[in-house]
């Protein structure tokens, strides 16, 4: 079946993120100067007072907490079939936040409590691209 939703296209500085996901590894960048992780990928540490270019890619745990979300009751460009679906911001155990979908859950506010624990699910949407999605821990 053809995947009709938006498909991300890597740029030079994000290549490693997408390549890692293809291998089912969540890879983000770490600053060797201020010892913090950050997201999205950039060739320098974005933290105020640091801005170091001494950075490295690391594979992280894939565990996260739910930070905030909406339950979308409208959808376009392939998402019509998913309504209602959860668009969320999760906070990785290593610190950075990212947008994702919470899947394998009944999309009801009662089941989606901020700070609840989540784990990554690697969603292979095409032969080249895997999206990092999340589900409640211990599914």
């Amino acid at each position: 079946m053809t995947y009709t939703k938006p498909i991300p296209k890597a740029t030079p500085e994000t290549q490693e993120f997408w390549a890692g996901l293809r291998r089912h590894e969540l890879r983000i960048q770490y600053c060797n100067e201020c010892l913090r992780y950050y997201f999205y990928p950039r060739p320098f540490c974005p933290f105020q007072g640091c801005r170091s270019e001494n950075i490295t890619w690391k594979t992280v745990s894939g565990f996260a907490k739910l930070y905030s979300y909406v339950i979308s009751h409208r959808g376009f460009g392939g998402f019509e079939e998913d309504i209602p679906y959860v668009i969320a911001i999760v906070e990785l155990n290593e610190g950075p936040r990212m947008m994702t979908n919470i899947i394998n859950i009944d999309p009801d506010p009662q089941n989606l409590i901020p700070d609840m624990l989540l784990e990554i699910v690697f969603d292979d949407i095409t032969e080249e691209i895997t999206l990092p999605k999340f589900q409640p821990m211990n599914q």
């Binding site: 939703k5 740029t11 997408w18 909406v70 969320a88 979908n101």
Partner: peptide, 21 residues
């Protein structure tokens, strides 16, 4: 295109709203 649109955001009501919770 890489870090938001793949998750089905479709306009301000699905994005501007995310912080509310």
């Amino acid at each position: 295109g890489q870090f938001e649109l793949p998750y089905g955001v479709w306009g301000p009501p699905s994005m501007f709203s995310i912080p509310i919770v």
